[in-house]
Simulated assay, not measured.
Amino acid sequence: MRGRVFFIAAAVAAMAIVSGCTTNSTQFASAYKGRSDGGYALPSIPLAKVERQYRRQIVDYATKEKPGTIIVDTDAKFLHLVLEGGKAMRYGIGVGREGFEWSGVAKVGWKREWPTWTPPAAMIKRQPELAKYRGGMKPGLTNPLGARALYLMRNGRDTGYRLHGTPEWWSIGGAVSSGCIRLMNQDIIDLYERVQPGAKVIVS
């Protein structure tokens, strides 16, 4: 009888451990539903098509950086927002394609909701069809900057790089951009609300 009780207890404990392991990756699942935001009907993201590691989750994270710091791991395609207690909020990201990678230390200069996108001159030169947006592409569901943008500065100057949303949720986990770091729109909205101007950003 004692052996049976031990077996049941062990099974319950194992279930609890499994539940604990999956909680972090599923607790924000409802955050990817469609919603109204800034006058736009933000569509839902088919979460079943997004690899589990790229979904928003709280993870153990050892770092000497203070809470509020953003650490971008371009190899793993993760952005970590450092939290208290050895934890971090982790988001899946898309990064710069070959030849457009960027790394370094910067800070969040300013933030914008539903930003205007203005392609840089070098991009227009590569893609002349973008010349029509030289004066800026109006905000919207198809705007490449998505629902939010955090503008990165270094030594008091705009780096030209952004942490921003994207309507192309399927690109998360890939090397696809012209150097900026992109997140799913629902994730950049969450990050935007947690981060203040002046926050340190480390991209490696």
Rank of each mutant, 00 (worst) to 15 (best):
G179V: 07
N155R: 14
D60Q: 12
S178H: 15
K49H: 12
L141R: 04
V195M: 00
K138M: 03
E193D: 15
P67M: 10
R126W: 05
K77N: 06
G165T: 04
Y161T: 01
A62S: 11
A16N: 00
Y151D: 00
R4A: 12
R90L: 05
R55A: 07
G174S: 05
D73H: 08
Q27I: 09
F78M: 04
R90Q: 11
W117K: 14
I188D: 08
R182S: 01
E51L: 03
Q57N: 02
T23V: 13
N24K: 10
P46L: 04
R55T: 06
R194Q: 09
G109C: 06
D73R: 02
G109I: 09
F78Q: 03
Y133R: 11
H80I: 00
V59Q: 01
N185I: 08
R52E: 03
K49L: 11
A88Q: 04
L141N: 10
W169S: 11
V5C: 02
E51R: 15
I202W: 11
L141H: 00
K138E: 11
A199I: 04
L130V: 07
K138A: 15
A9R: 03
T159D: 00
G34P: 07
S44D: 15
P115F: 08
I70W: 13
I71R: 13
S177G: 04
P67C: 05
R112V: 14
G156Y: 13
L163K: 13
I181K: 01
G92C: 10
W170S: 14
Y54K: 06
V176Y: 10
D158G: 06
W169K: 06
T116Y: 06
L145N: 08
N143D: 08
D73A: 03
I172L: 14
G85C: 08
W110N: 07
R97M: 13
Y133G: 12
G34D: 14
A131M: 07
A16S: 00
G86R: 01
P120H: 11
W169D: 14
A88F: 02
W117Q: 11
G160Y: 07
I189Q: 10
Q57T: 08
S19T: 08
L145K: 05
M184F: 07
P46C: 03
D158S: 13
V95T: 14
Y151Q: 08
G136F: 05
W114D: 01
K77L: 07
D190E: 08
A175S: 14
G198N: 08
S171W: 04
R90T: 00
G86W: 02
T26F: 07
R97L: 05
Y54P: 04
L152K: 13
A131F: 02
T74M: 09
R97D: 09
G104S: 07
D60M: 11
R148I: 09
A29Q: 11
E129K: 12
I93L: 01
C21V: 05
S204E: 12
R90H: 00
F28Q: 10
T69K: 13
G3A: 14
L47T: 10
G3I: 14
V95A: 15
T26G: 02
D187L: 00
K77A: 01
R126N: 08
G34L: 10
S19C: 12
W102G: 01
G39L: 05
S103T: 07
K132I: 04
G94M: 11
D60C: 10
P43I: 04
S25G: 06
T23L: 14
R126L: 10
I93V: 14
W169E: 15
R134S: 11
D73V: 02
G173N: 09
E51I: 06
